[in-house]
Design a protein around this nucleic acid. Structure first.
Lengths: 184, 184
DNA sequence: CAGTTTCCGGAGTCCGGTTCACCTTATCGA
DNA sequence: TCGATAAGGTGAACCGGACTCCGGAAACTG
């Protein structure tokens, strides 16, 4: 890959991240402008607007998922899950501008987001498995299901949503604890 | 209101409902065509496409919410809530074509959907209050919060979502039962 | 430094919701 | 019954935003 191409790709990702965090309308024109390139260049690097969003989000999610191991090392499995759910919410607060795309990640089977969705589901699976093994959480619930349940939270854009999100996480968390069988 | 105007309004609502249920693309042109009128007529009766969706959905929701009283009369309060959550999911299955609009109802504060959102929240409040009074459900959770938690389910469009939706309802339901204090 | 390959710019296309200037017709008083 | 009139209907045009395309520029290669 040519040097200028790589430079533009990085600039586009940085500009897109910045635009999404600022909750701008984040039109493709605007993102390209921020990156100092034209829309044609944006589309050379990313097939669609969604693909750009997916790549930005993939990087963010990778960071987040990397923490699930650390949480398990430092906390009891159920507490680790609780913290992770809240981190997920906090993280989605950072991504208001990506709202629609985030919904796609959690709510659909769009292949564009396969990697991201799988990575999140895997992190949740690890946390759930540890909790089940310790008899703190019920079995029979996959990370994918928890992820989808969180989809509604990530999509929330109403005022005061942070408090509601925390409450919903609590309900989910307690629902996962309900009927746990000590001993696995 | 003139007779032909009323007739067209009804035809538009019927056509819109039919189009949404069929999960067509449901463009405004298509809805107008099905109703046998031009787009201008559609816009005479409904300010925006969203307003049309809102009206169709308002009628559907009114039917659904009317059942919450019957459920409370025939079942224990916690069971009534469980059934209502599942009805909500089943109902959203009927409304795949309205996916985006449904998200607006549950996820945002858009004034267009105020009535519908309030009606659903009120039905859930009734169910929750009865369950709390009977010591079967925890307090401190409003219907609005439960409604938002369900937003993720209603937005789901991936294959196999029905099973996931049922699992998520179970988790929410158990989360609401967790830590209930018998006696209210 | 010529040849070749890749990349960039930005005007133009496409698509779907929305508008508006003009036509039609239901309604009603005479 | 009929003319006046205002409510209602029409659909071509508009507009915003994602996406495409091709002429020209810039980077590698030998």
């Amino acid at each position: 890959m040519r040097a200028d191409a790589r430079r533009n790709r990085e600039a586009l990702l940085a500009a897109a991240r910045e635009a999404f965090l600022a909750d701008d309308d984040a039109h493709v024109e605007e993102i390209a402008r921020r990156a100092g390139v034209a829309v044609g260049t944006l589309y050379r690097h990313f097939d669609t607007r969604e693909a750009l969003v997916a790549e930005v989000y993939r990087q963010e999610v990778a960071d987040l998922c990397a923490t699930s191991g650390q949480l398990l090392a430092r906390h009891a499995p159920d507490e680790a899950l609780r913290i992770f759910l809240l981190l997920l919410v906090e993280h989605s607060a950072m991504s208001k501008g990506m709202g629609e795309a985030l919904e796609s990640i959690t709510a659909t089977d769009s292949p564009v987001f396969d990697d991201t969705r799988e990575e999140m589901a895997r992190a949740l699976d690890d946390l759930l498995a540890a909790g089940i093994a310790a008899g703190l959480l019920r079995g029979g619930v996959s990370g994918r299901v928890v992820l989808r349940a969180l989809g509604g939270i990530c999509g929330m854009r109403a005022k005061g949503w942070e408090d509601d999100a925390v409450r919903i996480c609590t309900i989910l968390y307690d629902g996962l604890r309900y009927g746990a069988t000590p001993g696995g």
